[in-house]
Amino acid sequence: MILDIIYGVLLVAGALFFAAAVIAFLRLGDPLARLHAVGVAGTAGFGLIVLARIVEAASVWAMVEYLIILVLGAAASATVAQGVAWAARTRPEQERTEEWPREDRGRRS
Rank of each mutant, 00 (worst) to 15 (best):
L32N: 06
L35F: 11
Q82Y: 15
P92H: 12
A85Q: 06
R34G: 04
A24R: 01
A57K: 01
T90E: 15
P31R: 04
G106S: 03
Y7V: 01
S77L: 06
L72S: 12
D104K: 06
R96V: 00
E56Q: 15
V22L: 15
A15W: 06
S77W: 03
P92F: 13
V50L: 15
M63E: 14
L28W: 04
T97K: 05
D30V: 02
V22C: 11
P92N: 12
D30I: 03
H36S: 05
P92C: 08
E56P: 00
D4F: 09
G8Y: 12
D30G: 02
G45C: 07
G14K: 03
T79S: 12
R91N: 05
E65P: 00
A76V: 13
E93A: 15
R53I: 08
L67V: 12
I2N: 08
L28P: 01
G45Y: 08
V9S: 07
H36K: 04
G45I: 04
T43S: 14
R107S: 06
I5T: 13
R105P: 00
E65N: 14
T90F: 11
A85D: 10
Y66V: 01
L3V: 10
A57V: 06
I49D: 00
I49M: 14
D30A: 09
F18P: 00
V71L: 15
W86D: 11
L51I: 09
L32K: 07
Y7W: 14
A20M: 14
A88M: 15
V12M: 12
A24G: 15
R96G: 03
P92G: 10
Q94P: 03
E93L: 13
L35E: 04
A85P: 00
D4Q: 13
G47N: 05
P101G: 04
V12E: 08
R27C: 09
V60G: 12
R27P: 01
W86L: 07
A41P: 01
A62K: 07
M63Y: 04
I6L: 14
R107Y: 11
G83Q: 08
V55Q: 07
L51D: 05
Q94H: 15
A85N: 02
G83I: 07
G47A: 15
A62H: 13
V40K: 08
R105V: 06
L67S: 13
E98N: 03
F18K: 02
L48R: 01
T43F: 07
L16Q: 03
A52T: 05
A78E: 07
A75L: 15
R108W: 12
I49H: 01
E103M: 09
A87K: 10
A20C: 13
Y7A: 05
H36L: 11
A58Q: 12
Y66H: 14
Q82N: 10
M63P: 00
M63N: 09
I54P: 01
G39F: 05
L48I: 03
L16D: 04
P31S: 11
R91D: 02
L48P: 00
D4I: 03
T90I: 09
Y66E: 11
V40N: 08
I23V: 14
E99F: 09
L48G: 00
V71W: 11
Q82F: 14
L16R: 02
E99W: 07
